[in-house]
Amino acid sequence: MKERKIAVKIDDLTVAYNYKPVLWDIDLEIPEGVLMAIVGPNGAGKSTLIKSILGILKPIAGSVSIYGKPYKKQRSLVAYVPQKGSVDWDFPTTALDVVKMGTYGSLGWIKRPRQKEKKAALEALEKVGMLAFKNRQISQLSGGQQQRIFLARALVQNAAIYFMDEPFQGVDATTEIAIINILKELRKAGKTLIVVHHDLQTVPEYFDWVTFLNVKKIATGPVKTIFNNENLTKTYGINYKVSVQE
C-alpha cells in the first residue's frame, strides 16, 4: 500500500471535565481520504474527541494538527456537523439561512454573506435533496430533513476534512442512505471524513477505516483488518459479536 498523507494527527491528547478524564492520552493518525467511523460505548469520549480537535474544548494536555499545522491555522480545511440535538430547532430561521452559516467561516468576522454565498448554499441544498424546503422554518422539518440541512451546511464549507457527530441519529432509512451516498462521494473526491457512529452493524458496509475508542484509544486502522470481535470486546467490555459481511 502506498504511503498516505496524514490528514489529522493527534498526540498525547488528554481531556477532562471537572478533572475527570474523558479522553486519556490519545495518539491517533488519520490518513487522508478515509471514511472513518469512531465507535465506542456511551461516554467513551467520541464527541469530546471531535470537539477537542476543533478547538471547541480545551484539552489539558496534548496537541492536534491538521495537515501538519495547528487547527487554528487550518480552519478553512475543516467542516463540522455537530449533533443534531445540540442546537435549538425552534430558532427563528430558515433552512437556507442555516446552510448559509457554513459560509461564515470563509467570510470571517464582520463581512456578510452575499449572492455568491447564497448560490453556494442553494447548491448544497440541492445536493442533499432539500432545495424545495429552502424557505421552510427549521422546526417544521423532520429529523431526517434537519440532519440533511446540517450536512448541506458542512458541504457548503467545501472543506478537505469533515467531522460529523452522529449524522445518522434519528433519521429515516431514506435519509440514512442519502447521507451515506454523499459521504462516499466525498471520499471519492479525496476528502477525509471522520464520523461518530453508533450502529456497529453498518460499520463494514459504510466505512473503510475505523477507530475504537473508550476513554483510551483501543485500535485504529482499516475496517477489513481491525473490525473484529476482539477489538469490539475490548472496547465495549462485553463479549461482542457482530457479523462482519465480506
Binding site: 445540540s86 442546537v87 435549538d88 452559516m101 467561516g105 467570510l107 464582520i110
Partner: peptide, 22 residues
C-alpha cells in the same frame, strides 16, 4: 449591524461558531 452574523451563529450553534473561529 456589524456583528449580526456572529451573534446569530453563536446563538444558534455555539459549537459550529467555535469551530469556525467565532
Amino acid at each position: 449591524i456589524v456583528f449580526f452574523k456572529e451573534l446569530k451563529i453563536s446563538t444558534f450553534d455555539a459549537g459550529l461558531a467555535a469551530s469556525l473561529g467565532f
